[in-house]
Simulated scan of single mutants.
Amino acid sequence: MDGTATDQLSMTAAELSFLLASGDRQGQTPRLLGLGDADRTDAVLSAGLGSLLLRHLAAPVDGSRLEMAPAVAAVAAGLHRPRGFVQLGLTADDHADGALLIAAEQIRMLVAARAYRCYDVTPLAPEADARDALLAVADKFLHRHRPAIATFAATSAADFERGVQPGRATLSSAADGTWRVVTRDGAETTAEDFDAAATVLREELARMMPAPSAAQPAQS
């Protein structure tokens, strides 16, 4: 599979743990996903494999080799070789949510934790701008739960491994209908609508993001 599928799917923590364990290195991706040492036990990995097989998201071929469904192959490609991450935290007085953008060489995907240790995983189309996907998630939450704030924290995988603090920017919605963007350097911009605020944030994200906002074409 070439890892270019863009189907959204729900996956369990055990399934993601199995995919992570099938690569040559896990890096810090498990921690960003909220997966710990308990998710790397043989029992959990076996459960993840069994779940993928039962859901027909993987199939055994040639003895012990596995062939993944296109969407799962895309997820695995992103998990194994990330170039960078954007963490999106969403908070309001009585609600919280979030998503993680994982950017690899030829695949970007949004991963959002859900109830019962499940995750919504959405690989982005090669031509899609990852900033649009991030802002769409923030837009929905900020309109529904105002006053609310969206925090964008971007880092390269290498910097995250070294413990370098990610760059942060925020977009917030106020009860009076106004919007505010605070960039990494602390500069504040107030806007009367979401679109105006999003324009400012898009420019800041272009500077912050550790990988291009659109996937790079495959090399021939």
Rank of each mutant, 00 (worst) to 15 (best):
V121L: 08
A191N: 00
A158T: 12
D97Y: 00
A198S: 13
R108V: 01
L142G: 00
T189V: 04
L171R: 01
Q106P: 01
D120N: 13
R146V: 12
R162P: 03
D185S: 12
D132I: 08
F194N: 01
E161V: 14
L90Y: 00
D139G: 08
L110H: 05
H145T: 11
G167Y: 09
F152M: 06
F194Y: 11
E105H: 13
D94N: 09
S173Q: 05
L100H: 11
V137N: 14
D93P: 00
V164W: 15
G98S: 10
A196T: 15
A174I: 03
G89R: 10
R162Y: 07
T170N: 13
I102L: 14
A113G: 09
L101N: 00
L101R: 05
V200T: 04
Q165T: 10
D132N: 14
D193V: 09
D97S: 07
A104F: 13
A191C: 04
R146K: 07
A174L: 12
F152L: 03
L124P: 07
I107R: 05
A104H: 09
A154C: 10
K140I: 04
A112G: 06
E203V: 08
Q106C: 13
R202S: 01
Q106W: 00
D176F: 09
L110W: 13
D139A: 04
A196H: 11
L205G: 05
P166N: 00
L142N: 06
R114L: 12
T91F: 14
A136M: 06
A96C: 05
G98W: 00
V181N: 05
A196M: 08
P166A: 04
L135N: 07
E188C: 13
A103M: 05
A104W: 03
E192M: 13
A133F: 11
G89D: 15
A158H: 04
A150R: 04
A115Q: 12
E188P: 03
I102F: 11
A133G: 12
F160N: 08
A148S: 15
G98K: 03
G177K: 13
A92C: 12
A128C: 03
D97N: 05
A169S: 14
P166E: 06
D185P: 07
A197L: 04
E127P: 11
E188Y: 06
V182C: 08
